[in-house]
Design a binder for these strands. Structure first.
Lengths: 331, 331
DNA sequence: CTGAAAGCGCTAACAA
DNA sequence: TTGTTAGCGCTTTCAG
C-alpha cells in the first residue's frame, strides 16, 4: 500500500498534524522535527494525496480545457503552451473537445465540476454562454481565449481580430484583388474579423458581396466545400481569406482538384500560422500562440490562487506572415 | 454551496446510505424511494463529488496520457480519438507532454499518481522504463501505444512497424531508387521499422549504408537538419523515408530551400498520414489512428474496471497512402 | 512548537 | 428495504 500521512507520523514519532504542517509549510515547526519528517517522507517515498487534500477544501491542481477539437493544430499548439506553463505552476490540464456541440459542452462542464477542477479555460467555439454563467456562479475561475462575452466580466486573452481581418484583406487588396472572399469559422472571434474585412474593402473601394461570404465549421472538408461554392459564384473570387489554417488547407485542396494553381489562379490567406502553413507555404495571419498559452495559464492560476482580484483583458497583436500562397492579381 | 449527499438525504427524508445506493445502483431500494431520491437530486441539481468518492477507494475516472508532445498532429489526432472513446465510457484525459525528457516523465508520473488517475496510456517516446515498472507495481493499469516492452507483460496497441518499414522502402525501391535514406525518430517503434527497411533493401539487392541513416527527435527543424546532412553525403540519396510526417515536412522544407523539386529531384515518404500530409500531397504510411485511440481506451478501461484479466497485444496494419511526393528515379 | 479531534462528501459493512 | 456508523487521507482550529 502507498504510505499515508499516518505512516509518516508514526515512523517520525510525531502527530499527523505536524506532518501536515511540514508538508504545507504552515504553522511553526522546529527545524529538528521538520528535518526528521522530511527525511521519513523521502525514506517512505511518501507523496500526499491530492484527492484527500481536495476533499478538505484545497485545490485539485487541475484545470479544464474546453476547445472544439484537440486535433486542430491551432488548439493543440495552444494546449501545449498552456500545459507547459500550467505544469510549471503545478497544475495539470484535462482536455475536452466539444465539437461546437452544446450537448458535449454540457456533459464536459458538469463532469469537470464534479471533478472539482480549479478553473476553466474556454476557447472560442464554445456556444453555450449559459454554461459559463453557471461556472462563474459557482465561483470557479474562468479564462476565455479568443472569445469575449461583453455581458460577463471575465479574464480573456485573444488577438485583435479586427486588425487581423483588416490586415489580411488589405494585403490581398494591395495585390490588386477585387473579388476577395471569406470563409469564416462559426466562432465568435469571426465577427470582429469580418468587421475588419469589410472596413478594408471599403478602404480599397471594394463592395462587400454576400455571395463571397461563407460561414462553416473548422475541418478541411468544410473548407473544401465552402471553396467549391465560392468558385461557383457568377463572378468568382480571385482571392480567399480563410479564417484559419485548416480551412485554408481545404481551399487549397479544392483548388488542387480543380487544377487551379496557387497563387497564379487563386490567392489564399489563412489564419493562425500553425504547422499546417509550413509546406503549403501558406500566407497567414499569425497568432502568438506561445504567449497566449502562457498568459492564459498565468492569469487563470493567479485568480485560482486568489492573487489577483481584477480581471485581465489581454489583446495581443496578430502578425501577417507572407509566404507563397498570395500573389498579384493576374488579368 | 453545492449540495451534498446530506442535503439530498434530508430533503428526501432518507439516510445518506440510501441516497448513495440509488446513486450507485447498489443494494435493494424500493421503487418509490428511488424515484423520490432521483427527483430530489435533480431538483437540487445535485452531482456527486468524484473527489469524495475517490477517497473511499473508488475511481477518479481519469486517465493520464503520456506523449512526447500534444502539438504533434500524430499525438493530437490520437488523443482526440482516445478522448472520444474514454469520454463515452465516463473517463477524462489529462495530457502530459514529456518531450522525450526523463525529468518531465518523472514529474508527470508522480503528479498523476498523486492525483490517483485510474490508468496510464503511455506512447512511444517514453524513455524511462523504470517508471513504468513503478506504475505497474502500484497495480495501476497501463496501456502502451506503439511501444512494447518485452520484459513486461502489458496491454499494447500499435501497428506492425516492421511491415511499415518494409512497405515504404519497397515502394521507393520499386520506383527505381537505389539510394534510400532514413530519418528515424528516436522512439522504440523505429527499431522495427529499420528492420523492415533493411530487409526491403536486401530484397531489392541494395546495400544498407550507415551514412544514409539518421536518428533524431520529431520537429520540423530536426527533419530539416537531418535532410541537410543526408544531402551532403558523398553519394546523396534520391529518396528519403522519414519516420513521421513532421520529419517529412522538414525534409520538404530543406528541399525547398535547396531548390529541389519533389518528387523530380527527391522522393519523400512520411509516416502517420496526419493532416500534415494533405496539401504537401505527401506519400505516407498511414496509421489507423481512430482505431488505435478507441482500442486504447477500451482495453485500458476494461482493465481498470476489472473486466479483463488477460493482457491484450493488438497489432494493426499500416497502409501505404500514395500521393505525389514519391516518383520514379530520374537519371 | 506540537497534538487531539472534528470534519470534508462519500462508500460499505453491518444492524435493524 | 433502510439506517447507523466507521472510515478514506488530509487540513485546520484550538488546546496544551
Amino acid at each position: 500500500m502507498k504510505p499515508t500521512i499516518y505512516d509518516v507520523a508514526e515512523k517520525a514519532g510525531v502527530s499527523i498534524a505536524t506532518v501536515s504542517k511540514v508538508i504545507n509549510n504552515t504553522g511553526r515547526i522546529s527545524d529538528k522535527t521538520r528535518k526528521k519528517v522530511n527525511l521519513i517522507m523521502s525514506e517512505l517515498n511518501y507523496h500526499p494525496s491530492f484527492v484527500a487534500s481536495a476533499l478538505t477544501g484545497k485545490r485539485t491542481q487541475t484545470i479544464g480545457l474546453l476547445i472544439p477539437n484537440i486535433a486542430n493544430p491551432f488548439y493543440s499548439e495552444f494546449a501545449r503552451n498552456l500545459e507547459d506553463r500550467a505544469h510549471e505552476l503545478g497544475y495539470s490540464i484535462v482536455i475536452c473537445s466539444t465539437d461546437y456541440n452544446e450537448e458535449k459542452e454540457k456533459k464536459y462542464v458538469s463532469l469537470l465540476m464534479r471533478k472539482q477542477v480549479d478553473g476553466f479555460i474556454i476557447t472560442s467555439g464554445f456556444t453555450n454562454v449559459g454554461l459559463i454563467q453557471e461556472v462563474i456562479d459557482q465561483k470557479i475561475p474562468v479564462a476565455l481565449i479568443a472569445y469575449s462575452i461583453p455581458t460577463l466580466s471575465l479574464n480573456s486573452i485573444g488577438i485583435d481580430d479586427y486588425k487581423a481581418g483588416y490586415q489580411a484583406t488589405a494585403h490581398l487588396a494591395e495585390l490588386g484583388h477585387k473579388r476577395i472572399a471569406v470563409i469564416a469559422e462559426t466562432v465568435q472571434s469571426s465577427n470582429d474579423r469580418v468587421r475588419g474585412y469589410k472596413d478594408a474593402l471599403k478602404e480599397y473601394q471594394l463592395e462587400f458581396d454576400i455571395n463571397l461570404y461563407i460561414e462553416t465549421k473548422a475541418t478541411v472538408e468544410d473548407g473544401e466545400i465552402a471553396t467549391d461554392k465560392l468558385l461557383n459564384v457568377e463572378e468568382p473570387p480571385t482571392a480567399i481569406f480563410a479564417f484559419n489554417d485548416i480551412l485554408a488547407i481545404g481551399t487549397m485542396q479544392c483548388a488542387k482538384k480543380r487544377g487551379l494553381s496557387i497563387p497564379e489562379n487563386l490567392s489564399v490567406i489563412g489564419c493562425d500560422n500553425t504547422i499546417l502553413a509550413l509546406i503549403p507555404s501558406l500566407t497567414t495571419m499569425g497568432q502568438p500562440l506561445r504567449e497566449m498559452g502562457y498568459e492564459a495559464a498565468d492569469i487563470l492560476i493567479e485568480e485560482i490562487e486568489g492573487k489577483k482580484t481584477r480581471k485581465h483583458q489581454i489583446l495581443l497583436s496578430p502578425e501577417l506572415v507572407i509566404r507563397d500562397s498570395t500573389g498579384p492579381l493576374k488579368i
